[in-house]
Amino acid sequence: MNRDAFLTRAQAAKVVGMRESTIGNWRARGWMSPEGERRHLTVRRRKDGTLGYRLGDVLDAERDTRNNPKSRRGGGRVAALRAAGDAEPRGAKELPRAGHEVLRLHCPPRPTSLSALAAAA
């Protein structure tokens, strides 16, 4: 893997499994490294005018954010609580993921043709 490759924001978000807005926030605000210093993504303007984000920085930001006990993302916070002797945060419970699979259970299928649309009416 070439950590010096530059990706679009959408590609970077897909690689680390986060939203595109998170990638933009890491660029604008930075993130805290394990050493306690604030780091920012390395970007380069592409020929089409969009920004390219360095893959190595994106992977580092995701790892550091996931492992940061103060972060709202990842298991770092729960891991820190477990290390302190508190098995789970108070009031924590496993919730189902709100995704397409949940929506499919509650929404009727969309009609795909005019005949199906007429039959539904």
Results as ranks from 00 to 15, higher is better:
Met1Pro: 03
Met1Phe: 10
Asn2Val: 05
Arg3Phe: 04
Arg3Ile: 04
Asp4Gln: 13
Asp4Thr: 11
Ala5Asp: 13
Ala5Arg: 14
Thr8Phe: 03
Thr8Lys: 00
Arg9His: 02
Arg9Asp: 02
Arg9Asn: 09
Ala10Cys: 02
Ala10Asp: 14
Ala10His: 06
Gln11Asn: 02
Gln11Trp: 00
Gln11Leu: 01
Gln11Met: 03
Ala13Asp: 01
Ala13Phe: 08
Lys14Cys: 00
Lys14Gln: 06
Gly17Asp: 10
Arg19His: 08
Ser21Tyr: 06
Ile23Arg: 00
Gly24His: 11
Asn25Lys: 13
Asn25Gly: 12
Trp26Tyr: 14
Arg27His: 06
Ala28Asn: 13
Ala28Met: 10
Ala28His: 13
Ala28Gly: 04
Arg29Cys: 06
Arg29Phe: 10
Arg29Thr: 15
Gly30Ile: 11
Gly30Pro: 14
Trp31Thr: 01
Met32Asp: 12
Met32Asn: 10
Ser33His: 14
Glu35His: 06
Arg38Met: 08
Arg38Leu: 10
Arg38Lys: 14
Arg39Leu: 09
His40Cys: 08
Leu41Lys: 08
Leu41Asp: 09
Leu41Phe: 10
Thr42Asp: 09
Thr42Ala: 13
Val43Arg: 00
Val43Thr: 15
Arg45His: 11
Arg46Ile: 02
Arg46Glu: 11
Arg46Ala: 08
Lys47Ser: 13
Asp48Phe: 07
Asp48Lys: 12
Gly49Leu: 03
Leu51Gly: 01
Gly52Cys: 04
Tyr53Trp: 01
Arg54Cys: 07
Leu55Asn: 01
Leu55Ile: 04
Leu55Asp: 04
Gly56Val: 03
Asp57Lys: 01
Leu59His: 03
Asp60Phe: 09
Asp60Arg: 15
Ala61His: 12
Ala61Val: 06
Glu62Ile: 08
Asp64Thr: 15
Thr65Val: 14
Arg66Leu: 07
Asn67Trp: 04
Asn68Asp: 15
Asn68Cys: 11
Asn68Pro: 10
Asn68Glu: 09
Ser71Val: 04
Arg72Leu: 14
Arg72Asn: 11
Arg73Thr: 02
Gly74Gln: 02
Gly75Thr: 05
Gly75His: 04
Gly76Arg: 03
Gly76Lys: 11
Arg77Phe: 10
Arg77Met: 05
Val78Ile: 12
Val78His: 05
Ala79Phe: 03
Ala80Cys: 03
Ala80Gly: 05
Leu81Gln: 12
Arg82Thr: 07
Arg82Pro: 01
Ala83Leu: 13
Ala84Thr: 03
Gly85Ile: 01
Asp86Leu: 12
Ala87Lys: 07
Arg90Thr: 10
Arg90Lys: 13
Gly91Arg: 10
Glu94Asp: 11
Glu94Tyr: 13
Arg97Gly: 04
Val102Pro: 02
Val102Lys: 14
Arg104Asp: 06
Leu105Asn: 07
Pro108Trp: 11
Pro109Ala: 08
Pro109Glu: 09
Arg110Pro: 03
Arg110Val: 08
Thr112Leu: 07
Thr112Glu: 12
Ser115Ala: 15
Leu117Asp: 09
Leu117His: 08
Ala118His: 05
Ala121Asp: 12
Ala121Tyr: 15
Ala121Trp: 12
Ala121Phe: 13
Ala121Met: 14
Ala121Gly: 15
